[in-house]
């Protein structure tokens, strides 16, 4: 039986792992290769590197990090953050990444996902979606994209059913007016092999995933869903799988700050009847 995956996520800046809350007060937390090896020993099923390097000149450091990690760690590695061109993808895959996560670039040009999937195969294209709930009294403002007229159906309309979520970009700061569920489906149709869905409402709050969001999306797509954003304890992982119907659960801080090890998470889930790899 296919096991549910536990995926630790590392934020990497200028080639170092950083820890912080909501991208502020970042502290150096060590060497990505060493941390990746430690997670492998604990039984992590995959790894995600999120490159948050801001300066353009230092963008290439991530390739070295990926290269060194792939020499030591023999499990799937996904790299996201700043993936904008087919060359970016090619370079990451050549460096040893198994999958790349595309976020903002997909929103700016959905067909980029199609090109990437055709060129490199769906198995290595993860589309990352940052989602936030639309409040009942909120009138969401839509960004205009070059493709807006081509796919008007992807945007929120008057009189949508609640609960309702819209896609955000720029680390959750900019709303797009794009309907999350229809967007996820479109990304699947364009060849995404997996959806990495982060709730911006829950991220950093440590009160659990947005299981309503995850379950709604998971039931609408035929590709695997990775739930992200909000894990504060092991029960949240369980809920993410049972209530949120996630195929994989991603967490950062509970593992970084050693609140729990991955092996603890696995034995907890196993005891509660979830199929995990020991």
């Amino acid at each position: 039986m296919l096991a549910r995956r536990i995926i630790p996520c590392l934020d990497v800046k200028d080639g170092r792992v950083v820890k912080g809350v909501n991208f502020v007060n970042l502290v150096d937390a060590g060497d990505p290769v060493q941390i990746a090896s430690a997670y492998e020993k604990e039984g992590a099923d995959e790894l995600v590197f999120l490159d948050i390097t801001a300066s353009h000149e230092k963008r290439d450091i991530i390739f070295d990090v990926v290269r060194e990690t792939a020499e030591k760690v023999f499990m799937p590695l996904t790299v996201g953050g700043g993936v904008r061109t087919l060359d970016d993808i090619r370079n990451l895959l050549r460096s040893g990444a198994d999958k790349v996560a595309i976020n903002t670039a997909a929103v700016h040009d959905p067909e980029f996902v199609q090109q990437a999937a055709r060129r490199f195969g769906s198995q290595c294209i993860v589309v990352a979606i940052d989602a936030r709930r639309v409040l009942k009294d909120e009138s969401p403002s839509a960004q205009t994209f070059d493709w807006s007229n081509k796919h008007p159906e992807l945007f929120l309309k008057e009189g949508e059913d609640f609960p309702l979520w819209q896609v955000y970009t720029h680390g959750g700061r900019k709303s797009t007016g794009i309907h999350v569920i229809r967007w996820a489906k479109q990304m699947q149709d364009f060849g995404a092999g997996e959806i990495l869905l982060t709730s911006m409402d829950c991220d950093g709050v440590k009160q659990g995933y947005d299981n309503e969001l995850n379950a709604t999306v998971s039931q609408k797509i035929d590709i695997p869903l990775i739930a992200s954003g909000g894990v504060g304890n092991l029960e949240h992982l369980y809920d993410g799988i049972q209530k949120g119907l996630a195929d994989a659960v991603l967490a950062a801080s509970i593992f970084h700050f050693k609140e729990h090890t991955i092996s603890e998470a696995k034995s907890y889930l196993h005891k509660r009847g979830v199929c995990v790899r020991p």
Binding site: L2, A3, S122, P224
Partner: peptide, 11 residues
């Protein structure tokens, strides 16, 4: 219906 790709660890 099962998700496709079959992605992850299986025995």
């Amino acid at each position: 219906k099962l998700k496709i790709p079959h992605m992850g660890w299986n025995s």
